[in-house]
Simulated scan of single mutants.
Amino acid sequence: MTDKFIIRFVAAVTIFVITVVIVLNRHLIPGPAVAPAFTPYLPMLNAVLNGTCTVLLLTSLYFIKQGNIKVHKRLNIITFCLSSLFLVSYILFHYLMRNDTLYGDANFDGVLSPAERAAAGGMRTLYLSILVPHIVLAAGVLPLILLSFYRGLQMQVEKHKKLVRWTFPIWLYVTASGVVVYLMIQPYYHF
């Protein structure tokens, strides 16, 4: 495979994934009339997958610093697979919840007293200050992950290192902030 093909493939996958997420968030595709019973568990699954990926990324960094390429590569393959599973689960959740308004959002609904409303306003600001970069970086890191993964599997070490200088911290932020976002919004889910 040529670099030109790989770059086109990565661009196509990235555009497809971002398009699907935008379409789902804009409610352009109707979901089922009633979400399946397992649907409320998907956000927790996503948080567990993100948390696991965070630990695996840090562990992978440790092993490459020790010069253990074999373990580093295996951990990154597992992380890539779990991140892919996360993406499928995330898309599935947002598809299944299209017609269901009983899940939480960034408005932190359900807070009643004036003091609680004020606290929720501050919490909402903090939540959005974590969520917005999480979303932007999640979209931006996808092509970096795909290219880094490809370069690493092909043992194109110098190209892999150059990409990973950017990919690693962004991917780490996305996985860790995904857990934080879940923990912040979880009390406001109304399943």
Rank of each mutant, 00 (worst) to 15 (best):
K70A: 15
L28F: 12
F38S: 10
V181F: 05
P40Y: 11
Y189Q: 13
G122V: 06
T125M: 12
S84C: 02
A118M: 12
F191Y: 13
F191V: 05
K159V: 00
K162M: 13
T52F: 09
L96Y: 08
P40M: 08
L28K: 10
T101M: 14
V141C: 06
L153W: 03
M155P: 00
T167K: 09
L144Y: 12
L45C: 02
V180M: 13
N76K: 05
T167W: 11
S89F: 02
M44Y: 11
L126Q: 00
V88G: 01
F9A: 15
A138M: 09
G67N: 06
V181I: 11
R124Y: 05
D105S: 10
G140W: 01
R117F: 05
C81P: 00
R98Q: 15
N107T: 15
C53V: 05
A106R: 13
V174W: 02
V21I: 15
A120Y: 01
V132P: 01
G104Y: 09
R151H: 09
S177L: 01
Q66N: 06
L137S: 01
L131D: 04
L82F: 14
V132M: 12
K65N: 14
M1C: 08
A106T: 08
I64A: 06
A138N: 02
K65W: 14
F93H: 00
Y95K: 08
P36W: 00
A176W: 07
E116L: 11
F168Y: 13
I22V: 15
V180S: 08
A106V: 10
H190R: 14
P143N: 06
I77Y: 11
I22Q: 12
G51K: 14
S129L: 13
C53M: 07
Y173R: 01
R8Q: 13
T167P: 02
G140A: 03
V136F: 13
P114G: 04
L92A: 15
S83I: 00
Y189S: 09
F16V: 15
L102R: 03
Q154T: 07
V48E: 04
K73Q: 15
D100H: 08
P32G: 12
F38V: 15
L131R: 06
R117K: 14
Y95W: 14
A115L: 10
T101W: 13
V20F: 08
V164C: 05
I145T: 12
L147F: 12
L92G: 02
L96W: 03
H190P: 00
I91Y: 11
F149M: 08
V136L: 15
H190S: 13
P187L: 08
P40Q: 11
I69E: 08
F16Q: 06
E158G: 02
L56Y: 11
P36T: 02
L126Y: 01
I15G: 02
L96F: 06
F168K: 03
T14I: 07
C81M: 11
L183I: 01
I29K: 03
G51T: 13
I22W: 14
S129G: 03
I29V: 15
R98S: 15
